[in-house]
């Protein structure tokens, strides 16, 4: 594992490091040739269309699935190791809990199974939603069950929190509150979070790191600020046929022509020439463009690149 000992290597420990990761189901490849690292202390959004391999990636990190090829490390350890198990917590989309357990029994299970258990943190989350401790899980509403699952994950005091569509069945008020709790937790303990979500606008102020996968492959990975700064939205009028050279000399992610107007999202390879209105895209615009154009050239920022044993950056 590269822990920043080599020249120009990453200075910060990796919470997750994937090397050529791939997973094949009977239907075909769900994830293919995925190489990236997530530095510790980041809150990372995992974005991609349905069936892009997000749950597969989280499942491998949580030791629920085995990769067909490649490796993934959690804090430098194999997902099945005791170290990775102790330091990570996974909240699955379907929030599996024992329906016949009461809330209190569920938290007790968490306490018995996890040495570093924080009963107060877990109870605070349950109490904030007025979920009765004596109620059976099976009698709770979807939102209440999600809250108990959150409490179970937080109570473990993990260094890495893996969340699969955590907010999808919550009303806006609870979503805001639990997102606040999640952010406050990360602020206090420096927890690394990897969270898949479809709610792009919600990710905007929450994530400082991003991993985008589409059609099983990695499209974007890195710091949100760096990824945004690497792109420019161009708007202007075109003269002749096709895209003007002013645009095509850059890396074009997506372009649209309506009448004489041209809109393009590009990664500038040098200064922008010509009379173009330039804007920095917001996160939603950037993500939508990459999701709409799955064959756009991928961009992996330096902090998200993994290095092979010789210390060279590996192309994703």
């Amino acid at each position: 594992m590269s822990n920043g000992m080599g020249l120009g290597g990453p200075a910060v420990e990796s919470a997750i490091e994937a090397h050529g990761l791939g997973k094949r189901y009977r239907r075909g490849w769900a994830l293919k040739d995925c190489s990236f690292r997530l530095p510790t202390g980041r809150i990372c959004g995992l974005v991609g269309p349905n069936g892009a391999g997000k749950t597969t990636l989280l499942g491998i990190a949580a030791n629920l699935l085995e990769p067909t090829e490649g490796t993934l490390r959690v804090f430098g350890a194999a997902p099945e190791s005791a170290e990775a198990n102790r330091r990570g917590a996974f909240l699955a989309q379907e929030k599996p809990l024992f329906r016949r357990f009461t809330v209190e029994e569920t938290l007790r299970m968490g306490r018995e199974l996890n040495p570093g258990w924080d009963q107060k943190a877990a109870e605070d989350i349950v109490r904030a939603g007025n979920v009765p401790l004596g109620a059976k899980i099976g009698t709770l509403s979807g939102g209440q069950r999600t809250r108990v699952a959150f409490a179970l994950a937080f109570g473990k005091r993990p260094d890495l929190l893996l969340l699969d569509e955590p907010m999808s069945d919550l009303d806006p008020l609870v979503r805001h509150e639990l997102m606040g709790t999640l952010m406050a937790e990360a602020a206090e303990h420096g927890t690394t979070v990897l969270m898949s979500s479809h709610m792009l606008t919600e990710l905007e102020n929450v994530c400082d790191y991003l991993v985008v996968i589409a059609a099983g492959g990695l499209r974007l990975a890195g710091e949100v600020d760096e990824l945004l700064a690497a792109h420019t939205l161009l708007t202007g009028a075109k003269a002749g046929e096709g895209l003007p050279r002013d645009i095509t000399r850059h890396t074009v992610v997506e372009s649209r022509v309506s009448g004489r107007q041209v809109n393009a999202l590009v990664r500038p390879d040098g200064p922008i020439d010509g009379a173009w209105q330039t804007d920095t895209p917001n996160l939603e615009e950037l993500l939508l463009a990459y999701l709409r154009v799955p064959d756009a050239p991928p961009l992996i920022s330096p902090s998200a690149q993994v290095t092979d044993r010789a210390g060279k950056a590996v192309a994703a």
Binding site: G180, M183, A187, N205, V206, D208
Partner: peptide, 16 residues
């Protein structure tokens, strides 16, 4: 307000 307090009330990343 501390980053933790702002995170809790506004649901934003503490780095913000």
């Amino acid at each position: 307000p501390t980053a933790k307090e702002v995170s809790q009330t506004c649901a934003v990343n503490p780095n913000t």
